[in-house]
Amino acid sequence: MFILTTIQDLIQIAPPDFHKPSPQAIKDAINAKYANKVVLNIGLCICMWDLLSSSEGLIGHGTGLVNVNVEFRIAVFRPFRGEIVKGRIGHSTQEGIWVGLNFTNEVFVPFQNLFENSHFEEGERVWVWDSEGTELFFDKGETVLFRVEQEEWIDQKPGIVQKDENGNVIEERGTAWRLIGSMAQPGLGPTLWWGDQEEGEEQEGGGEQAMVGEQEVGGELEDAGEQGDGREDVDEMVVDGA
């Protein structure tokens, strides 16, 4: 789910950060540039992991910024295909279900990747799975497990916000990266479904084990009784023979 990626870059330290120790100033500059950002073909950057090397700082002419060449490792969120990830349902539409994690909401499960016999309830804005006559709901806020199917990289347009005459935004800038998941296999979907079933199976399994144990104990007692009767017969024969 999380990987470490090595990056080489030129960062700039502003004069207000000159009072900080150099490692701390470099770390803050790297996190300000990369943390919570999507880097093409790398993934969603979380934060700097460690600093591998850095050059001497050079002050830029007329700016006062210190330019430093750095090599560092950064923690990146990029799950592999087929990985099972836990999230929470954010909202649902007719196209599918949006799932949120603690640090991103860019996880989408299209309706084609839900259980068979699932349908969308327009009034409650929720997807429902009809499992052999029982309706199970993908409620908002439910903790779910989903399987990563693929990741999408989306080319970004220049950051110019287009507005109409009234000042309303015509087109918002979309995300550069998202995960496509599925919830169509046993064990996936709301954890509440499978947790209750597992508890029921454990209770049933415990009852079966108890019954088996009673049968085994009963069998041992019966065998011991038969052996005891045999020993008594032998003792009686010995006494009679004496």
Rank of each mutant, 00 (worst) to 15 (best):
Q227H: 11
E135I: 05
V85C: 06
F137Y: 15
L221T: 04
G205S: 14
T63R: 10
V85T: 03
D155I: 10
V148N: 15
G174E: 10
D223L: 08
G225L: 13
D164T: 06
T93C: 04
E202N: 12
G200M: 12
V107G: 00
L179E: 03
V66P: 01
G87W: 02
G174M: 04
A35H: 07
C45W: 01
E216T: 08
Q112S: 15
A35F: 02
G60T: 03
E204G: 00
A75H: 10
T6S: 14
K33G: 03
E71K: 15
G230I: 11
P110V: 11
F120N: 00
V85W: 01
V107S: 03
T143R: 12
G225M: 14
T6V: 09
P16E: 03
R147A: 06
P186I: 04
K163A: 11
E171P: 02
L221Q: 07
E226P: 00
I180W: 02
W193C: 06
E71V: 11
E165G: 06
V144D: 04
V161K: 13
H119N: 05
H19D: 08
L4S: 09
L101Q: 10
P23R: 02
K86H: 08
R88D: 01
G218F: 02
Q150C: 07
V126W: 07
Q8V: 05
E165H: 03
Q8F: 05
F77K: 04
I7W: 09
A224M: 14
P16W: 01
T63N: 14
G207S: 13
P15C: 08
W153K: 09
V66C: 15
F115L: 03
R178N: 09
Q162M: 09
E222T: 13
V68I: 15
R173I: 14
N166C: 03
K86V: 10
D240F: 15
F137C: 05
P23N: 02
G43D: 04
G213H: 08
A210L: 13
T143S: 14
L145R: 10
I170K: 15
F18E: 06
N168T: 09
S131G: 00
Q24V: 09
G133T: 08
E95G: 12
M211E: 13
I154F: 03
V217Q: 12
K86W: 00
P15E: 05
M211P: 00
S55A: 05
F103Q: 05
G205T: 08
Q94V: 10
S53E: 09
V239A: 13
V217R: 07
S92M: 09
L114H: 13
G87T: 06
E214T: 07
